[in-house]
Design a protein around this nucleic acid. Structure first.
Lengths: 125, 125
DNA sequence: ACATTATTTAGCAATTCTGCTAAATAGCTA
DNA sequence: TAGCTATTTAGCAGAATTGCTAAATAATGT
């Protein structure tokens, strides 16, 4: 019997694990941190300047990313330097940007009519 | 100047917009849906069987993904078929899987010592 | 030991997300 | 029109996330 879920789709924990990684990325401050770490390791205080939140908040963002294995850190004196462990995430985020561009073009294409005499809805239901 | 148009990603900073797309992915049910739609469009009822939640819940997951522009839908009779709009997200998710594998290997490598006489912490602080 | 700097942890209030049921809407057919 | 199926919307309660301040920990130097 061949249902939709007989490939990798049936594996429950895989999807949960993927979701955890994505949640660890899905925050503007954490994405800002990712972009900074793309250029090399940074200590927590440098990252605080970047994201502009309180230091404990930045520290927790870093912990969340470290907990799912996308960052690592090393201590040097009193400072802790974080670095990116999964470089392929950067091109993956590029795809997110492509999605954003495609979406905004689509909105312009279907919503920019001078007068609104049209009967059908702007985008598909 | 822009029309008021609905939403989501139009007037946000780049990092906020990216985060919204990632949040739209960061749920096991939605990732399951993504995997199914990788093989072609599916109607809502098929996807309900796949994720096993109530129909309204599945519908809302789909709306969330559509709101950020990664899915689109078309109506055929009483059914609504959803499809993937941003195929490059699939290899991007592969990178997430690589991150997961790397993380689990790292845990094995640093935590599997027969006896725990070691003084230093298992992984870096 | 004490002080200083850098970072993390605890704990709290506010917000957001999730999944449900009930009700509304959309399209089809008799 | 009414009746039927498929889907969406509304509204609620419970859970998770966020950002803060205050307190704890870590490494270093006096």
């Amino acid at each position: 019997m061949q249902t939709i879920q007989n490939t990798a789709l049936a594996d429950l924990s895989l999807f949960e694990a993927r979701a955890q990684v994505l949640r660890a990325l899905a925050h503007p401050a954490r994405l800002r941190i990712m972009a900074a770490l793309a250029e090399g390791e940074r200590c927590v205080c440098e990252l605080q300047d970047l994201v502009g939140s309180s230091l404990p908040t930045v520290s927790r963002h870093l912990s969340q990313m470290k907990a799912v294995g996308i960052l690592a850190c090393r201590r040097q004196g009193t400072q802790v330097y974080y670095r990116l462990l999964v470089p392929c995430l950067l091109p993956a985020l590029d795809c997110v940007d492509r999605a954003l561009r495609a979406d905004s073009e689509r909105r312009v294409a279907c919503c920019s009519r001078p007068d609104e005499q049209g009967g059908e809805p702007c985008c598909d239901a």
